[in-house]
């Protein structure tokens, strides 16, 4: 059994801001808690904010990485539960970007006492296409090719990975601003996380989520189409969807004002 201090340092937990409500932020694949740094200034005056890195990402304790545990998103959801337990958090709002939307849903289903609301930024329960009922956006072959490209470019790639995905409108200005967000990741761990992310299918989970859920989707996102957001909305009974006029997969970095406003309105 790991004690709370071990978990806080294992997951590089940081607490900022103050307020009656606590927000727990879960980052997406290929990055770490840094990806929230444009958003938190808008929220820290009203909320207590807990940031962390999943084991294997950012400044987490990589020696605690267990290939078996993190083969599936359940392993990452256990990180969320353990961080909550270590900090004695309950009744919190979990804000998850991309794959963390589903990780948060898994944790919320497992421990409804800990998580009372979910906010998903560009989530996808399943990246694979299952025609004709579901279009996740990718055929299996596409995703296998993506993992193979990660392997073939792994020298360099994992040291210099821009948060997936800034979008087509890649102005030099935006990239310059995001340069501090390039994440150095262990390539083997990154690939394992990629496999857990891109080959998972958690559509079955959505109907079981009873917490109020806000879905923020980008209008033009290479990874999660608007129709995926609509699917999530339709499956989670207690959810609402906001489609943001934007390009790219990282709304919290490219459009922090709109994202923070949506979060504040939703929680209030």
């Amino acid at each position: 059994m790991l004690n709370s201090e071990t978990i806080k340092s294992r997951n590089n937990v940081k607490i900022i801001g103050s307020g009656p409500k606590t927000l727990l932020f879960g980052h997406g694949f290929g990055c770490d808690q840094n990806m929230w740094r444009f958003l938190t200034p808008y929220l820290e005056t009203q909320f207590r904010i807990v940031l962390f890195d999943y084991v294997g990402s950012g400044n987490s304790d990589i020696s605690q990485y267990d290939k078996q545990r993190y083969k599936k998103l359940e392993g990452y959801a256990l990180d969320v539960i353990e961080v909550c337990t270590a900090l004695e958090l309950s009744d919190l709002v979990f804000v998850g970007h991309s794959v963390s939307g589903m990780i948060g849903a898994l944790a919320a289903f497992e421990r409804p006492d800990l998580i009372s609301k979910l906010i998903m930024v560009c989530p996808s329960p399943c990246f694979l296409n299952f025609p004709p009922d579901y279009q996740g956006g990718f055929d299996k072959e596409d995703l296998q090719e993506l993992l193979s490209l990660m392997d073939k470019n792994y020298i360099g790639w994992a040291d210099y990975l821009a948060p997936l995905v800034v979008g087509n409108a890649n102005s030099a200005e935006l990239i310059g601003e995001l340069s501090g967000s390039f994440c150095s990741t262990d390539p083997v761990i990154a690939k394992n996380f990629a496999e857990a992310t891109f080959f998972s299918d958690y559509r079955f989970l959505l109907k079981k989520i009873k917490q109020p859920t806000l879905i923020l989707q980008s209008q033009d996102d290479a990874l999660a189409d608007v129709s995926v957001g609509e699917y999530v909305k339709q499956e989670i009974e207690t959810s609402s969807l906001i489609v943001i006029t934007a390009q790219g997969h990282c709304l919290q970095m490219t459009h922090p004002e709109i994202v923070s406003e949506s979060i504040i309105n939703y929680i209030q």
Binding site: G30, F138, D142, L143, E145, L146, S148, L149, N153, W157, Y160, L161, A162, P163, L164, V165, V166, G167, N168, N170, A172, I175, G176, L178, S179, F182, A222, L223
Partner: peptide
Amino acid sequence: LTKSSRIFFQSYLIPTVLH
């Protein structure tokens, strides 16, 4: 570009070139 290459292009290649 194939679909997977587009993701690489957007998330790695273009940011690297610009940076």
